Amino acid sequence: MSAAAGAGEGVGPDDLVDGQLPITAREEHFSLAFLRMIVYEAGCSIKTHETDYDGVDVTIVSSARYDRWIAPQFELQMKCTTQRNYLKADHMAWRMKAKPFRKLTNGPRYVPAYLGVLVIPEAPEPWLSVDDDRLMTKSRMYWQAASEIATSDELGDTRTVHLPRGNLFERDQLLGIMRAIGDDEGGAR
């Protein structure tokens, strides 16, 4: 058996960091773990998808009763990067391939969709720091409703989307999204 076959299909020894998971797999799992901490801290839950064929990775659900709906939910497409050069003064500029962009933004959707991009530290800086008092990370995730995504570079194989720096994915903003959906306020859906 070759090293690539033993490490996983299409993964060669040069793709592995320190003989462990490839960096892309680490980023994917770390972004989901980050998301879970925020979602569970807010008292919400996550439904996973077996595929992201519809352009989303997970569905985030609240169990709360709001003015219009009980248990509002939204779908989220997750991305992860170490590239801090995407951060501008007032937004994060994220380039998406045209096909996943269309899947995410072509609506209307019955369940609102959002894009979340997690920015993690670049190697060799650790992604996490743990001591007796806390678990810390210098990571942060920016979000935008698919219905609100402004684009540039409309021609070609990619689209640039802008996620406002003020849209920091954290407990209070997550609960605000749920409130807007549950109260049927419209807007960023």
Rank of each mutant, 00 (worst) to 15 (best):
A33I: 03
G12W: 13
A146H: 01
G156V: 05
G10S: 00
P164R: 10
H162L: 06
D184I: 02
R68V: 15
Q73A: 13
R189A: 07
R171P: 00
V161C: 00
R68F: 15
A5D: 05
A71I: 04
L175Q: 06
N167S: 04
L135I: 14
L174H: 00
D18G: 13
D157L: 15
R36W: 11
D54A: 06
R109P: 06
V111W: 01
S62I: 08
Q83K: 14
L174C: 01
M178A: 03
P13M: 12
R36I: 08
S139W: 00
R189Y: 10
R109M: 14
P22V: 11
E185Y: 07
V111S: 01
M78K: 13
Q173G: 05
R84S: 02
S63P: 06
R26Y: 09
T137G: 08
L118T: 05
R179W: 00
P126T: 05
L118V: 09
D15H: 15
R140Q: 14
Y142R: 03
K88M: 10
Q73S: 14
Y142G: 00
E27W: 10
F30C: 07
R95K: 15
A89F: 05
D15K: 12
S129N: 08
D15G: 12
M141S: 04
W127R: 09
G55K: 08
T160K: 12
A7F: 13
M92N: 08
L175C: 03
D90E: 13
V130F: 10
M96Q: 11
S62L: 03
M178T: 03
P164G: 03
A188C: 15
F101T: 11
F34N: 03
E75C: 15
A71L: 07
W143C: 01
Y142S: 01
T158G: 03
M1P: 06
V61H: 13
A71Q: 14
D153M: 11
F74K: 03
G43V: 07
I149A: 04
D54L: 14
G182Q: 05
L135Y: 12
G8A: 10
D54M: 08
C44R: 07
G182A: 02
I70R: 13
A123F: 14
Y110L: 13
D172W: 06
V11W: 00
M96F: 13
E125Y: 10
T59I: 03
M96P: 04
D15I: 09
M37L: 14
A98C: 07
Y86V: 12
R26A: 15
Y66L: 08
L76F: 04
